[in-house]
């Protein structure tokens, strides 16, 4: 196995050649917050890291559990590790020059303002619907400068093409099928969770690049 870590210029050159210099620079200058590092957030974080988003602010309070491995981007070696630490390690194996800021906390009414004060692109990737609504409403009500990209409905093996991206307001994008929640016999499965995560990640790249339509 080749363990030589490419230097920063090598990685930057490859990304710049692939994406064009203009796109590369915009992504490198960007900062994105991902709230929740489960099936959505772990996938979104890695997609943004692979794309070369320069600063990722990753938030989750939980540890990697065996029940996560059916859909979340973790491995057996991460069991019992905080998701913030596990995903930071994975990102370093893709591009060690990405600036990863982690907060191993639960988002609450008390800490929400200070947590996101330096973020203006915020990705809602929670599992719990009350938390989803809390974050989205708070950001939309208090942060007129921020974009929020949220998700609702991606459980089961329903048709892939029911997962879509919608633009609710100028600063609020919603991905998912809108209805399929977790019930007995309709659990979260890797493909549809990843499809929804990809919708969110692509929407975020588009916002960074000034493409605000859907």
């Amino acid at each position: 196995m080749n363990t030589k870590i490419p230097d920063k210029n090598e990685i930057d050159n490859v990304l710049s050649l692939r994406h064009t210099q203009e796109v590369f620079e915009k992504l490198k200058e960007a900062r994105v917050a991902v709230a929740g590092l489960g099936g959505l957030g772990s996938n979104i974080s890695l997609m943004l890291a692979r794309s070369g988003v320069g600063t990722l602010h990753l938030i989750d309070f939980d540890e990697v559990d065996l029940s996560n491995l059916n859909r979340q981007q973790y491995f057996i070696c991460h069991l019992g590790t905080y998701k913030t630490e596990a995903i930071k390690e994975e990102i370093s194996r893709i591009n060690p020059y990405i600036n990863v800021i982690t907060d191993c906390v639960k988002v609450t009414d008390e800490n929400i303002d200070s947590l996101f004060k330096d973020d203006n692109i915020i990705c809602e990737a929670f599992d719990d619907p009350d938390c989803k609504a809390m974050l989205v409403n708070h950001i939309l009500e208090t942060r007129k400068d921020a974009y929020i990209v949220a998700a609702s409905g991606m459980a089961g093996v329903e048709k892939s093409n029911t997962i879509i991206t919608r633009k609710i307001t100028d600063r609020f994008y919603l991905c998912g099928d809108g209805t399929n929640t977790v019930v007995k016999g309709n659990g979260l499965m890797s493909p549809r969770v990843t499809i929804c995560a990809a919708h969110q990640a692509n929407t975020i790249l588009r916002i960074i690049l000034g493409k605000y339509d859907i």
């Binding site: 609504a133 409403n137 609702s152 809108g178």
Partner: peptide, 27 residues
């Protein structure tokens, strides 16, 4: 966006166009 603090009192009037986004569990 309609602030949450107004949910208890808001009455939609003729001409209003409303989108209610429902968050379901899963992520």
């Amino acid at each position: 966006i309609l602030p949450k603090s107004q949910f208890n009192e808001v009455v939609f009037k003729s001409g209003d166009i409303v989108e209610i986004v429902n968050f379901v569990g899963g992520g």
